[in-house]
Nucleic acid binder design. Structure first.
Length: 258
DNA sequence: ATGCATGTTCCCGG
DNA sequence: TCCGGGAACATGCA
């Protein structure tokens, strides 16, 4: 699925496309995972102006007129797509947003796991691109989890998925199986920098490749993560390991703290 | 053909 | 209670 950098690009595309447009009709084809009734969702959002779209963690938030927020998590297979005028709803369509200016976007999901949430509860879990250095140090200091799992733990820090966790840990030269609290502060500082650097660089790459994208993921620029990558940019053999049911890619350049 | 990838949740055992 | 492993979900791609 799309990860944080892709979602950031989607959010800016959605803003360019739909900001200040009024939602005319919300066509709810599949209501699975929805936290309110279809009637309530329609009632709250239809005829409201879309004020902005934001990315928070791995979800998008559509802010509508009267303080109504629609959160949307795409999960593994959710995809957004612009629908041309008169175009039929695609297969596996869950939601269609028809705006008064005749623009429409559709949410499809073959897995039916995409999760729309009306007015998601306030959440203090920091976003990976917004966490302060102090909060990040505190997060590491009392956790005996392996660092890769901690970075991917959405209840600790939001937005980092399997592939970017590998990229970040290689950038910081830290082994993914290091114990979080065993990482010394100087190294943790580097890790903090790597998070921002890797994610921002990815946003830049994706934007340059296609600032208008609304779906899919782009990974061409990844240094470590991917079954096709044999060596790191510095020439070290890429090894792999299952961590938390996911494949971690790493090299001997990455130091183990335990 | 086989199996891997992908996020989250839930279930189980240590 | 925390930690880690595994399954489940549907589909496309090597």
């Amino acid at each position: 699925m799309a990860e944080l950098p892709d979602l950031t690009v989607f959010a800016s595309k959605l803003n360019r496309l739909l900001k200040n447009e009024t939602l005319h009709t919300l066509d709810i084809r599949v209501a699975t995972k929805l936290n309110v009734s279809t009637a309530e969702l329609k009632k709250k959002l239809e005829n409201q102006k879309l004020k902005k779209v934001e990315r928070i963690g791995k979800s998008l938030q559509f802010h509508f007129g009267d303080n109504e927020i629609l959160g949307l998590h795409l999960m593994l297979k959710g995809e957004l797509k612009e629908l041309d005028k008169g175009e039929l709803a695609p297969k596996n369509c869950k939601l269609i947003f028809h705006f008064t200016g005749e623009k429409s976007i559709v949410l499809t999901d073959t897995l039916k796991q995409a999760t729309p949430t009306l007015n998601p509860p306030e959440n203090k879990i920091p976003d990976a691109l917004a966490i302060s250095q102090d909060d990040f140090f505190n997060l590491l200091s009392n956790r005996s989890k392996r660092i890769k799992e901690l970075l991917m733990d959405q209840k600790s820090i939001r937005g980092i998925g399997n592939s970017y966790a590998d990229e970040i840990l290689w950038n910081a030269r830290i082994s993914p199986v290091s114990t979080a609290k065993a990482i010394p502060e100087t190294i943790a500082r580097q890790l903090y920098i790597s998070i921002t650097e890797v994610l921002k660089e990815a946003i830049k790459e994706i934007t340059q490749a296609n600032k208008d994208k609304l779906s899919g993921e782009m990974r061409d620029f990844m240094r470590i993560h991917g079954s096709g990558i044999k060596k790191s940019p510095t020439g070290h053999l890429v090894k792999s390991l299952k961590i938390g049911g996911r494949t971690a890619y790493f090299t001997a350049e990455q130091k183990l703290y335990s």
